[in-house]
Design a protein around this nucleic acid. Structure first.
Lengths: 239, 239
DNA sequence: GTTAACAATATTGTTGACACTACTGGCCAG
DNA sequence: CTGGCCAGTAGTGTCAACAATATTGTTAAC
């Protein structure tokens, strides 16, 4: 049916200075390959359900198959791929139910981070975002410039996690993002969602600027709860 | 300095019906070995900082070294061991700061699960625990029978996660428990903590029985927040 | 007696070869 | 023509030998 979507570039067979993947000099390490594949899966360069052949990947990255095997092991227990014994590995399809579960967890974890960040960072930290979530973001919404919208959104998210100073939460949120990245981009284009989300974020930022961590947490939770409900309402158009 | 604490039993070198570890028939699979080691680390049968030799483990479980290698890889990105290139693997020491981070995350995740469980389960589900957290637990506390105390505690926890019906949260909480198991047992014996925790849990159970998910969530959070504060106060005696 | 260089050993890291399983296509019987 | 059986093939799973690196032990010079 649907053909592979794997990029066939490079083929990097050479050894010295050969591996262009991951930016490392020398040949591609396990971490490099994991990162490369994680990115492809997150951006859906490889479609969900598509097969990941070990030999194929080994040839592309110019590494022995054993190393690919290790990579697939890591990707598997991160939940990004499914492996069936003697059958190979395929990119996980994310069930709608699973996405809801992810959103419930994401809500409380981001709520936590927002609260911690409010407590840890000097209030002026958030001035930048009070500004951005004002006129500029309004403009993006009006002009349907969702890419710029998401860039700011991501920047805010990263800043929060940075100031939350909790590596455990950061790690868990990362593992959620790498699975829901795609969904986020689809939710934001749903009718009225960007506008609504912007309003919710203004509440979050205002509370943070005011130093009220608890209020910020509640606002952030509500934001993600609403996002989930929008998703539920329009699920037919998303999945 | 401190010698190894590794159990030297079995040495199971035989192949057929040899691997007694993990309960599986035939030789030990990767999952079996991971589970066996996870358990040992959680129960501190292997001391933090102790070295895990590949050949040693391979000999003990009667499997090729490659398989042990895979196991160590899994344990590493679960955060249970640290691996230094060409030096080997050692059991992670858990820093006090890290434990606080884990508790912050655990608080919001268990809070979530308590709320979800209250929404999903029929109220009668919790009658059993209303009962248990009454007189029986009081008795355990009075008699310093912390083992029984923890058994009930664990049972309650499992029931909550079961009814929360959120595999994502369940998985994340598991990864927290396997690291903090030891700490839990040390907190509960701190002066007054068991009594205090019991009171907090009665509030949780009461709210759940009454079907008030939000109140139950708040109560559960408060419970873990207090546990964390107790830990902070007595940190010298715990770590 | 202490320290530095060197050799020996033990342990981790890497790889290609071999074994096994599941799919593909052809063949034959009904 | 259809359905099941069988062999061939492609791909995954397993392993044991080889290479690289760190640690330990030894010797000799200061």
């Amino acid at each position: 049916m649907s053909g592979r979507v794997v990029a066939l570039k490079a083929k990097a067979r050479g050894r010295k200075t050969g591996g262009s993947e991951g930016g490392g000099r020398g040949k591609a390490s396990v971490a490099d390959i994991v990162e490369a594949l994680r990115e492809r899966i997150a951006r859906q360069d490889i479609a969900p359900g598509a097969k990941l052949g070990e030999q194929e990947l080994a040839a592309e990255f110019g590494v022995p198959r054993t190393r690919i095997r290790e990579v697939l092991g890591i990707l598997e227990n991160r939940g990004l791929i499914d492996r069936i014994p003697n059958r190979g590995a395929v990119v996980s399809r994310l069930e709608l139910e699973h996405v809801f579960h992810l959103y419930e967890v994401r809500a409380v974890l981001e709520g936590l981070c927002v609260r911690l960040a409010t407590e840890n960072a000097p209030p002026e930290t958030w001035d930048e975002f009070v500004e951005l979530f004002g006129e500029p973001m309004d403009k993006y919404v009006r002009e349907r410039d969702f890419d710029s919208f998401i860039v700011v959104y991501e920047r805010f998210r990263r800043r929060i996690i940075e100031w939350a100073r909790n590596p455990v939460a950061a790690r868990m949120l990362d593992s959620i993002y790498e699975k829901t990245n795609v969904v986020i981009r689809r939710i934001v284009i749903l009718p009225g969602r960007a506008q609504e989300g912007l309003g919710e974020h203004r509440a979050v930022v205002a509370a943070m600027r005011a130093g009220d961590g608890e209020a910020a947490e509640r606002a952030k939770r509500k934001n993600l709860y609403n996002a989930k409900e929008t998703l539920r309402r329009f699920q037919k158009y998303v999945i």
